[in-house]
Each structure stands twice: as C-alpha cells, then as structure tokens.
Design a protein around this nucleic acid. Structure first.
Lengths: 293, 293
DNA sequence: ACGATATTATAAAATATTTTGATAACAAAC
DNA sequence: GTTTGTTATCAAAATATTTTATAATATCGT
C-alpha cells in the first residue's frame, strides 16, 4: 500500500472535499477518487459517504478508525525521515530550555569539545511543554527538560540527571536577609518578582501558594532571570528560583524549610523509538559523569 | 512510499540475505535489490552494507533506525486491517481470562442479549499477560483483564470496573473453620492448594508470603477452581482466591485482616488508537451499570 | 589455481499501477 | 433552465515495479 493514499485520505478527512484535496497536493481530482477507492477496496470497507446532497462528506466508523492509524503511520514516517537525516549529517539536535542551557551547557561544553562532539550538536530553544511536543513530532533527537515530578510519558524515555531545590532570594536590605532559612508561609505578605516563561517554576510556586492558602502579590514577571535578580537586589520584591540561576552579592539566598518541597528535576529525554547513536551515547555519558550528584 | 518496501526491508534485516527475502515474498531477487535502493534514495542514506566478503550483511545506524520505524508502521497497518475487518463485520472481539469470563460474563449476558449485542461478541480466552500482548497486536478490540495494581501501559486505556478482595478458603473440618477472620501470618504452617494459571492470583499470593517472610507449602496446583474447592472441602489444603469463584457448603471463607492487601482489580482495556463504536460504547455502559459498586 | 556455487547489481523488457484529460452524472443555486 | 460545484467513469498516457537474463565478485572445495 502506498502511504501517499493515506496522506490523501487524511487530508480528505480534514477538507471534506475531493477537489480541494487534489488542489492541495497539486494533482487532478480523479487521482483522489481512485486513491480513496483503492483504500476502500484494500480495507474492504466504505470509508466516506459522498453526500452530494448536503454538500458535505460523512466519515464512516471504518473511516474514522483508518484516519487514526493513517495519522500514526504518517507521523512515524515523518519522524523516520527527520531522524535519518540527522544521522546522515551526524548531527544531534538537542532541545534546551534557556535556564537549563545557561546552567548546564557551559559545564559540559569543554568535554564535548574535547570529544569532538560539540560541532555536531545543534540546539533548539523553547519552553518545556513546547519542546516535549516537538520531541514527539521528531523535530529533535533529544531534549533536556525540567519538571517538578519525574517525567513519565508514553513514547518517551526520560533519564533524570540532576535535582535542585528551589530557594527564596531577597535583597540584603530585606527584613529576612539575616535569616538562613524561612518557611514559605512567612512570605504571605511579601511582594514577588517572578520568572514568567518557565512552566516548571510557576508550577512549583503555585503548588506552594496553594498549600499555604494564600494569593501571592506578584508585582512583576520577567523572562530574564538577570532582570529578576536586579529587581530583587533593589528590593522591588523577592523571588523564588533554583540555585541554577546566578545571583549577585546584593542578593541573599534563603533556604526553604517546608517539608516535601517541589524540586527542579532535570532529565534528558528521547523517544522510545529512537535508537541512540554512539555519539548520542557519548553525550549521555558525559552528562551523567559531569552532572550527576 | 510503498509499505511493501518496508516489509522487504524488515525481512532483510532478519534474513540478512537478499535472495532469501525474495524467496519468502515469492518475487525475484532484483526486486529486493531495487526496493532497498528505492528506500536508500528516499531516505538519502545507506541502510545496509552489502558485505559479500564476510558472507553477511551489516546494518547501518540509519538502517537500524528505519527498521524500528518500519516495524511500527507495519504493525499499525496490520492493526488497522484487523480493526476495520471487525467493524465491517460488526463484531466485537473480546479477550477474556477464564476466571473473569466465569464470574462476569453471565451477569451481563442477559442485558447484552436484550440489546441485541450478544451475537456480535466473539470471545478469545487466554491469560492476562497473553491477552495484553494480543490486544496490543490488534488481535482483539477489547479485553477484560485482572491485575493487582491499576493497569497502566503506554498505548492502552484501562477502565477499572470492579475490585474484589482475596479470601482464604478452608474446609469446615479445618481448625480455623470457626474463625471469621485471620491474619495471613497465621497460615505459616498450613498446606496450600493453589490456582495455577492465573498470573494475578500468584502475584498477589507471592506478595503476601514475601511480606510475611515464609515459604508456603504448596501441595497441589490446578487450573480449575472447582477442583481446588473440592480439594479444600476434603481438607487436602487451604486456598487463596477471590470471592468471584463459587464455593460449596463444605468450604468456609475467611476474611484476611492484613493491612494493604492486594485486591483483584478488573478493568476493561483497549488500545489508545482504537475508536469505540456505538456497540462497543454500549458494552462499556452495560458493564459499568451492571458491575460497578 | 580452477570450476562450481552463492551472492548482489545492472539493464532492458514486460507488467502493473497511478495519474491525467475529457466528459458524464447529479443536484443545488441563481 | 442554465450555471456552478461536486464526484465518478474510462481510456490513454505517464510512472513505477517486477522480471528475465546476465554480469560481477568472491567463497569453497578439490
């Protein structure tokens, strides 16, 4: 069976119009008719009901079922193309959220260079949710992802390599600056400057506010941790970040004493269908050796 | 791209010989040569290295990667065929382990008949591990499976519909026959007659013996719960079963007082890729209505 | 070392499949 | 009632795949 027929069929389910599908694939309309007929005889089932009366097309249960499998088959094929392309070019496409890139990448870059791996790594930036989707779609070979729970997804293998607690950062002029440790509940009346773009930071923060039953007073959000730290230094507010972000002298880091706090878990993630190349295995080894513990 | 080429390739990976593959598919040898060349140009990568010197074939990393996806694509296609075939014949193929069939099926059969569903249901018997594999391979639409933990598998949806505790059954002549409740640890020196074929029963039983640090004295195992009950009645030994198996007057059922005991969880399971037909939805509804709570 | 055997590749011919172009059939819309 | 939008049919053309015949290589046994 030709996968082209599945692509025509998939588009037909979307467009619900034979002529439009033909146009989209730049073929003539009878091509689509015969392709669908081919599928119908191959699967020995009516797939669509041509409803010329009501100007539209109904999809039979068999059609719905085939559409589901068609999507999976075409996705698999697409991923195969992308993965093999990367293999041929000896490239590792690695997804990295900015915070993780900032902290971890410099630590391993020297080793990667020594092993002549660095120039084969192409990074793609993005948030953790976005990267996970792109990873599943085959847009990259591997990704480093942050999370507050160990990652567990069908079709993905997650290999945890580091964990960091979250801290409270305050200005040295802040009343709490002399303390080493605080409970989160003590921050009920504080003003916060928070990290905007990280899904994980916000998830962790929300968990703590919910658990302590208060609505935090968030005065500003930024996508740049350096700006956040500068605002904290100026005592504009306090913040909640891990220690994987650098901080200046005018800022004091406080440990949280709460029990069962969320942790920032970093994992290297790849598809279950993905076969690791020697270079990719080397990357995994370097990351574990450099970063674990 | 033609999926036939993927099938040729998949077989080549197994046979490692072009001529053998040709023989298996009953085509001439150049067909395989050109099919592999087609794939190599489609994916723009060397897939196998024809090693005529060492009398065998090596598969490149790209080839390994493609083989993985080829398997998935061909499996998906095969499942599509089977599922649509069932749809067309308006059949529900339902996998059932014997114990579950015995207890649950009679309870719902009358309702299924009333809704004119009964004659569309084709059952397949088998153990829970075997049925799970067959389900994933598309051999059936749905299966009822027993387990001691809630089922959680990639690519399967499990819908729990009932839970039953396990009990100890003893002869009315057994010293414990007057008791209503026992701790599992009290059975340390008893002789057991156990159910052989159920993976779930054995899993649960082993959990309890391990937790109580003893090696049970199993004098007999059988695949037939009726035989087990007869042996228990004759005081050959005691047994460990749920109450979903019938028992006679000469046998006394004892509750277990242990904390966090395993339970026999029954779930209806189907593939995530499977689209439920109205008839299948009806079956689900009937099962929930009749069996839940 | 030489012929027999096994293996994969190549090229032209034979087949098979897919796409096209022309047009029919049908019903809705103007 | 003609025009428009839609899908189907069919023969011809265009493509794609398979076969037949044979070449190219290298192993194996003697």
């Amino acid at each position: 069976m030709n996968t082209k027929d599945l692509a025509y069929f998939q588009q037909l389910i979307i467009s619900k119009n034979f002529s439009k599908v033909a146009e989209i694939f730049d073929v003539r309309q009878p091509t689509i008719t015969t392709a669908i007929q081919r599928l119908e005889s191959e699967f020995n089932a009516r797939l669509v009901i041509r409803d010329r009366v009501h100007h539209s097309l109904t999809i039979t249960p068999s059609g719905e079922q085939l559409a589901e499998h068609a999507t999976r088959i075409l996705r698999e094929l697409d991923i195969a193309h992308q993965e093999i392309q990367n293999l041929v070019q000896n490239q590792i496409t690695l997804g990295l959220p900015p915070i993780i890139e900032n902290y971890y990448f410099p630590k391993i870059a020297a080793q990667l260079k020594a092993k002549r791996l660095l120039r084969n790594i192409v990074t793609m930036e993005g948030g953790s949710v976005e990267l996970r989707k792109a990873l599943l779609a085959g847009k990259m070979d591997m990704a480093l992802l942050g999370s507050i729970e160990p990652l567990s997804y069908a079709n993905l293998i997650a290999d945890e390599f580091d964990r960091h607690p979250f801290y409270i950062y305050v200005s040295k002029d802040h009343p709490l600056a002399d303390r080493k440790r605080v409970f989160f509940s003590e921050l009920r009346h504080d003003e916060f400057v928070l990290f905007e773009s990280s899904f994980v930071h916000n998830q962790a923060f929300n968990k703590l506010t919910r658990r302590n039953h208060f609505r935090p007073d968030v005065v500003f959000r930024s996508n740049d941790t350096h700006i956040i730290m500068k605002l904290v230094a100026q005592n504009v507010g306090i913040t909640y970040l891990t220690d994987i972000t650098d901080h200046q002298d005018e800022v004091v880091r406080l440990e949280l004493m709460d029990e069962e706090q969320p942790e920032f878990i970093t994992s290297i993630v790849y598809r279950t269908s993905h076969i690791l190349t020697p270079a990719q295995l080397q990357l995994l080894t370097i990351m574990h050796a450099t970063l674990k513990g």
